[in-house]
């Protein structure tokens, strides 16, 4: 029996264990779940070491071509501070590392969100309503622009949704519902694709190892 066949069996049996969850919780699922959690956690630890800490930190602190770059001690120390959470007396120091993570993340999000999710979308909505030419393009474009504006009205928090304002918010949430329906419908396909992929694995890779060829 080759390693490849063993691998197929491992994958197939574990898959079936997990699928059994659809019926109800059972020892097979519990087994696979616990194994999955443990193995994947181990996987990510190794990945963090091999793909970030070694190449992006250690090899910059002590480059292969020699020399020592003390500036890289800073992230090293901050990483260590993070781990001080394990020692109650020193746990407070982890705030410094947390502050770096949160601050950097917040700074990146501000510009990225404003540029990509706000300004670019506003820019894309600024169109001539007649763009496209036909009467149907007019209707479509009006729906689009009204939709964006009324959708934003729905997200107003500091004004009560009554009167004309409430009407606009209602149009907004209605349109959001149409959008969510469409998004759901569009997604169904992707989900089924995944099941198809797994089924293909079981039917065309695993069954043949038992001599069953469909």
């Amino acid at each position: 029996m080759s390693w490849e066949v063993i691998g197929i069996w491992l994958g197939a049996l574990l898959s079936l264990c997990l699928y059994s969850f659809l019926y109800k919780d059972n020892p097979f699922y519990k087994f696979a779940e616990h194994l999955f959690v443990g193995m994947s956690a181990g996987y990510w630890v190794i990945y963090a070491i091999m793909n970030v800490l070694v190449p992006n930190w250690w090899q910059k602190l002590v480059p292969l071509e020699g020399g020592f770059q003390p500036i890289w001690l800073v992230p090293g120390v901050l990483s260590l501070f993070m781990l001080f959470r394990l020692i109650p007396k020193l746990a407070g120091l982890s705030r410094l590392s947390l502050a770096l993570i949160v601050g950097t993340g917040a700074g990146i999000s501000i510009t990225a969100m404003l540029q990509t999710r706000a300004l670019a979308q506003v820019n894309g909505t600024i169109i001539a309503l007649g763009q496209g030419g036909g009467w149907f393009d007019w209707v479509s474009n009006i729906i689009m622009v009204t939709g964006v504006v009324c959708g934003l009205v729905y997200f107003f928090f500091s004004k009560s949704h009554t009167g004309v304002f409430g009407g606009a918010a209602n149009v907004g949430i209605t349109l959001l519902m149409v959008a969510f329906g469409a998004s759901f419908g569009y997604t169904v396909m992707a989900r089924i694709s995944l099941l198809i992929g797994q089924t293909q694995f079981l039917l065309f890779e695993w069954l043949p190892t038992m001599g069953i060829h469909l």
Binding site: M113, M144, V145, L152, Y154, L176, V178, A179, S183
Partner: peptide
């Protein structure tokens, strides 16, 4: 549906959420 109503909805969600994220940041 994807190009117009859906896009309008997605955009409203994106712009709104961006404001929330910017304010939080």
């Amino acid at each position: 549906i994807m190009q117009y109503p859906n896009m309008a909805g997605q955009r409203a969600v994106m712009i709104g959420a961006a404001m929330g994220m910017i304010a939080t940041s």
